[in-house]
Amino acid sequence: MIPNTFEYTAPLTLKVALALIGEGGKPLAGGMSLIPMMKLRMAAPEHLVDIGRIAELNYIREAGGELHIGANATHYDVESSPLIVGKCPLLAETAGHIGDIQVRNRGTLGGSVAHADPSADYPAALQALEAKIVLTSATSQRTVAVGDFFIDTFTTSLEPGELVTEVIVPVEAGLTGTSYQKFLQPASGFAIVGVAARIRREAGKITVARIGVTGVSGNSYRALKAEAALVGKAGSDAEIDAAAALVGEGVEAGADLHASAEYRLHLAANYAERAIRVALSRTA
């Protein structure tokens, strides 16, 4: 639990941070995953660039029908921000499921997203929200759709020198209901299965269905077949069950001490059913 020697810089501006990251510095956000790994010597970055003091990454604002959330927003910020609670409740609800209060007070949205833990909570919501991730380097900036950002277990489309600086989520219009349902691993608090549902029902018919899933396999994903099965339906119990049953189809589920692949897939369907049901109940 004693880390290797490392250099530590805590720049106050994004410009300096990006320059250091460009030189190979490893960004440190809330440190909720990185620090434990360093203490176990499973990770040994030579240079930590602590981005926690960069005020310009600390914002939550609405613009152009979207919410722009700076990478330094803590999970607690996301969970409790009136703007997010009011205009993108799915993200706030999901943040409230992360770890424990200590983790939520320190861990950040940007850090979690960049880490791409296959059992993290956010990816389910971000997939369902069709979020966009802003990646900034010393020389460029690009915005990537969440589906293109999460590539595999701990693997994202971040290039060397790039930093996640912002997450963009849509402002929910009326008629849309959302829900995040999670089956948690009792030791770590990570999701064994987490399902986020975002459903729009107009005149008694589902017009938009987005279902994001985390924990089941090596990467978060959108359950496209389940989504398609819902569109055009009223949302009866049978229709929900039928759609939820499709949520793990074609997915190569992972397995660990806490849940076999078979159980994960079973839970995915069960938690999809719960998420869809609750989301529909919130469409009114």
């Binding site: 176990l40 424990d100 691993q185 009792p186 030791a187 770590s188 001490l257 806490h258």
Partner: peptide
């Protein structure tokens, strides 16, 4: 010991 850390060793928490 494959449950050799609190990530996998599920000690009872207050919330449980």
């Amino acid at each position: 010991l494959v449950t050799g850390e609190f990530m996998d060793y599920a000690m009872a928490r207050a919330r449980m």
